[in-house]
Structures are given as structure tokens and as C-alpha cells.
């Protein structure tokens, strides 16, 4: 039978190299999460660090939790928080029409898609760090409310209220109280 994450972590207390198996299991998703938030370059640089931080904290891992993903996402989210400025700049996207002179005959469809993408990433940029953490762990990483609560060490009720606030702000920033207009903006880009 395959060992649970908790069993691997416990084994790594005696044989540290066992911890690399946890990397094999979860690194692709943790790397993608870091890449989504900070870009590929930063994600590649921070991935090993995330697992080294986890390794250094493994003695305190709650062995009653078989799945270590929330724990690893929490550590990764802390690292993202240390690089918040990069993330904010990353979300400041270029207006669609800024290359008028030299790209006047570019493919219009691409530009429109980019414009809408700009509006949505712009909407993400207006969120506070704590609201964005919750929204992206739910929307991108598809963690449950319980898992997000575990990852961020906050009550489930707080997860729920932050998520509601984040969704409302995204809708507002896109200029609609009604998410169908958001959908409309993205349609047929």
C-alpha cells in the first residue's frame, strides 16, 4: 500500500532522504501554483526553498492529516507573500493599444483577448494579499474551504468571508455586479 504523506513525513524524521518522495508527489502542483502567482522564473527559484522550509518544519507536522497538500500550499503562500511586490507588478498589465506605431496591423483578435485578460488580471491586482490568497487557492488550486483554512491557519468562516469579498471585488473591478457581464467581457475575445 502506498504510504500517506503523513507516513512519508514521519519516515523522513529517521531517513531524511525520504522527504524527496514528498517532492516527487507534490512539486509539480506547488511549482505551478508559484508560477501562476510569481512567474516561471521565480517559481523555479522558490520551489526548492518551499520544500526546504517544509523539511525544516516536518517535526511539527500534524500526523493526523494524511494529505500534506494544504500544509505545502500554506508554506508556498507564505513565500509568495514575501514576494508580494513582484506579484502586484506582474498583474499590472499593458494596455491593449500601446504599440500603435509599430504594430498597427497586428491581429485584432489577439489584442482584444489581451484587453480582456488585462481587465481580469487588473481585477486580481486590486485584491488585498489575504483575499487573493484565498481566491487563488480555491479557483486555481481547487482546494476545499477546509483545506484553505488548514493551509493558511485561519478559521473556515474567515475563508468563506474572504472568498466572498474577493469575488465581489473581482466582479466590481470588472465593472459589474452581475457576473454574467464578466462572462460577456471574456466571450468572443
Amino acid at each position: 500500500m502506498t504510504a500517506t504523506d503523513a507516513e512519508l513525513i514521519e519516515a523522513s524524521l529517521r531517513v531524511p532522504e525520504e522527504f524527496a518522495l514528498l517532492f516527487d508527489r507534490h512539486a509539480p502542483h506547488i511549482q505551478r501554483y508559484l508560477a501562476r502567482r510569481l512567474g516561471q522564473q521565480a517559481a523555479d527559484d522558490l520551489l526548492a526553498e518551499a520544500f526546504l522550509v517544509a523539511f525544516s518544519k516536518r517535526e511539527r507536522y500534524d500526523s493526523s492529516r494524511p494529505d500534506a497538500r494544504p500544509w505545502l500550499y500554506g508554506i508556498a503562500t507564505n513565500l509568495v507573500g514575501q514576494h508580494r511586490r513582484e506579484e502586484v507588478r506582474r498583474h499590472q498589465v499593458h494596455p491593449a493599444t500601446s504599440h500603435v506605431g509599430d504594430h498597427a496591423d497586428r491581429v485584432a483578435a489577439d489584442v482584444t483577448a489581451q484587453a480582456m485578460r488585462s481587465m481580469l488580471t487588473g481585477a486580481l491586482a486590486v485584491l488585498s494579499t489575504e483575499d487573493r490568497d484565498v481566491l487563488l487557492l480555491v479557483a486555481w488550486e481547487q482546494l476545499s474551504y477546509l483545506e484553505v483554512a488548514e493551509a493558511l491557519a485561519i478559521p473556515v468562516g474567515t475563508v468563506r468571508s474572504r472568498l466572498n469579498r474577493a469575488r465581489r471585488k473581482v466582479r466590481e473591478a470588472l465593472g459589474t455586479d452581475n457576473h454574467t457581464e464578466v462572462e460577456e467581457l471574456l466571450n468572443n475575445g
Binding site: P28, L120, W140, H179
Partner: peptide, 16 residues
């Protein structure tokens, strides 16, 4: 809107 945020991103999973 969660689905919209999700679809904003198409970052691939990296291989081992």
C-alpha cells in the same frame, strides 16, 4: 466568476 479566474490561467504542470 471562479471559473473565469480559473480560465485566466493556463500554466502547464512541469514534468519530473
Amino acid at each position: 466568476d471562479l471559473q473565469l479566474v480559473r480560465e485566466l490561467d493556463d500554466t502547464p504542470l512541469k514534468s519530473a
